[in-house]
Design a protein around this nucleic acid. Structure first.
Lengths: 358, 358
DNA sequence: TTGAAAGCGCTAACAA
DNA sequence: TTGTTAGCGCTTTCAA
């Protein structure tokens, strides 16, 4: 910068003005400075700028896996919004590891990101408090953050989010104690998908097509979304007057999903339909050769090309990313209102597999 | 930091020493400092650090679309390597727009990334020269960079990369003038996939299964990889003594692929097999209802679950990312050798569609 | 083992 | 319209 100033015969501040498009520079002077910049290949040092100005114009994005189709679409939407706001995106994969998540977040904070969008894998985000106090905004996406995060002065309290399916019961079922599902004090902005409502719709769809024994094959019960979807499943059974049977429910990692379903099917009185808790599990079940009636949570590419097409409850990952990012930037531009909890709707897409008769 | 120093009753430098694990601090003093850090929630300001030290411990990643499965896996691999090297990843999507690409790269450079990994969509990267001169390392991945980028002193010259399939002809065919394919001066490190060799293998596979009229449905000829794959196709035909027919070749965006193939099939003497130039096109062709013999470039999820399974020439996006990142970090740690051009092999995965008889 | 002072490149505040 | 000065938070250098 000094070199440029010298070459153009002006003071530092004038170069600064030109670089930042500040008013109060004669076109002629500006031209001279621009020429010097061009000739010397000068690029402003963003670190110095940040140091001086205090804001980095960048946000941190922590997701489970950058390579997961769901989260990569989510990330792209965040990037889009960030671009519109002149912000860059620092991103990292937590790999479902709370420690790694924490490390990543603190690293981002060291880099003084203006805000964070977090798909939390941990359930305790107490360590965020100093950062939030220091003015970093944070939005939890896809899953609520753990207890102990309370920015913006206003405490949120224990709000058992009602979900949008009719008549949700707020308590989580016995034998499926999902931490953070109900009664968790979530007080950062949170953008979720209507997991319970979506599962409710999917399972009801199967029931409407004549099934009375519907299996639930979901992910580990410790994951928030899994618990919510299980809730929706129970609610649908209940409303149809069908009994909830432990033997028709499996929760565990996707790798075990195929085997779990096989076990159910080979037992006495097997299910005639399956509801799967996410796309990884849907694919695992299909790969294991199961071809009975099926509705899966999460849309996935080529679901329409399989035979029969796979009926799914589609989330909107791009919408989730967009909403989260827009909320974050609203906070960054000064909105100090009470933390919000937004729940995005799901959409049932019938493609054949969910309309098979028992 | 000043507060911490005061609270612990030491000088700034001592805090700095503790934060950076530098030797020469009594355990007792260190303990006092750590306690103050914890109590005050102090986080070092990375911008100031960068400003002082000069290195940002971050790299920039420019890809076409963060949400594309191929590139998101690629990006994840880059992230993995960066993590091992204590580096963060700034990433952005160019959306195949050279202007956006350039803007993104310059933004990253302003942020003083230590290095860049670029999947170039533009063909001219002259604007990178000042950055490269300033010591930023760059690796082109998936496609070579345009002319006019010559770091590390050693010029690379015009090297018509031979590819690994036997007997490639170096000239690109008449009527398919692909810029940068042959004779392009590429002098940054470059990591590519063996596009020509892979296409050669895929088309030869179809020919071996009795097909004598194989269509090529590829992406726009202006894209480097498309051109290379077309080269491999020609080579395979040539070697089998089959004529190259313009009417069996289509190059254009994926949205038009289905219609293009339909046209070919409804003409006189239609093809009995198709080779598709990338997974987007493969899917487009399948979605258009085509079910003849097919080999596609690029593997994709669920290719094995379709009926018949889709035979593909698989690339290794994670390997591409890993190799690129490792090369970059080798440069960052001081390797000034001549620019490298690495070509990763492909793998043919037979699944049924490529083994159908004419 | 510890500390004081200088300065990284830039912009905010104030002068001319 | 243009310039001068101070200082952002840290590390480097040199001294105690």
């Amino acid at each position: 910068m000094k070199d440029v100033a010298e070459a153009a015969g002006v003071a530092l501040k004038t170069v600064s003005r030109v670089v930042n498009d500040e008013p109060g520079v004669t076109p002629a002077t500006a031209e001279r400075v621009s020429a010097a910049i061009e000739r010397l290949g000068y690029r402003p040092n963003e670190s110095a700028r940040v140091l001086r100005r205090g804001s980095t114009s960048s946000i941190g994005l922590v997701i489970e896996d950058v390579a997961d189709p769901f989260y990569s679409v989510f990330g792209r939407a965040v990037e889009e919004v960030a671009l519109r706001h002149g912000s860059l995106v620092l991103s990292g994969s937590s790999g479902e590891d709370p420690l790694r998540e924490r490390e990543l977040i603190l690293t981002f904070c060291s880099r003084r990101v203006d805000g964070l969008i977090i798909v939390p894998s941990g359930t305790d985000h107490d360590y965020l408090r100093p950062e939030l106090d220091a003015g970093i905004a944070a939005v939890f996406a896809d899953r609520p953050g753990g207890p102990g995060t309370a920015p913006y002065g206003t405490a949120y309290g224990t709000t058992p989010g009602p979900g949008s399916a009719p008549g949700h019961d707020p308590g989580s079922g016995p034998g499926h104690d999902v931490p953070g599902v109900s009664g968790g004090a979530v007080s950062c902005d949170t953008v979720l998908c209507d997991n319970a409502g979506g599962a409710y719709a999917g399972v009801s769809h199967l029931i409407r097509h004549g099934h009375r024994r519907v299996a639930f094959v979901g992910d580990r019960a410790s994951i928030f979304t899994s618990g919510e979807r299980l809730r929706g499943y129970r609610r649908a059974l209940e409303e149809a007057g069908l009994p909830f049977e432990e033997s028709l429910v499996s929760t565990g990692p996707a790798e075990e999903a195929g085997a779990a379903l096989t076990r159910m099917l080979s037992g006495g009185d097997p299910p005639t339909a399956v509801f799967t808790g996410n796309s990884r599990i849907t694919v695992a079940v299909l790969r294991a050769g199961h071809r009975q009636a099926l509705v899966g949570f999460d849309d996935f590419e080529l679901a329409d090309l399989l035979v029969p097409g796979v009926t799914v409850v589609a989330q909107d990952p791009a919408g989730l990313g967009r909403t989260s990012a827009e909320l974050l930037f609203r906070r960054l531009s000064g909105d100090r209102g009470a933390p919000e909890r937004i729940e995005l709707p799901t959409r049932l897409i019938p493609r054949g597999s969910g309309e098979l008769p028992p």
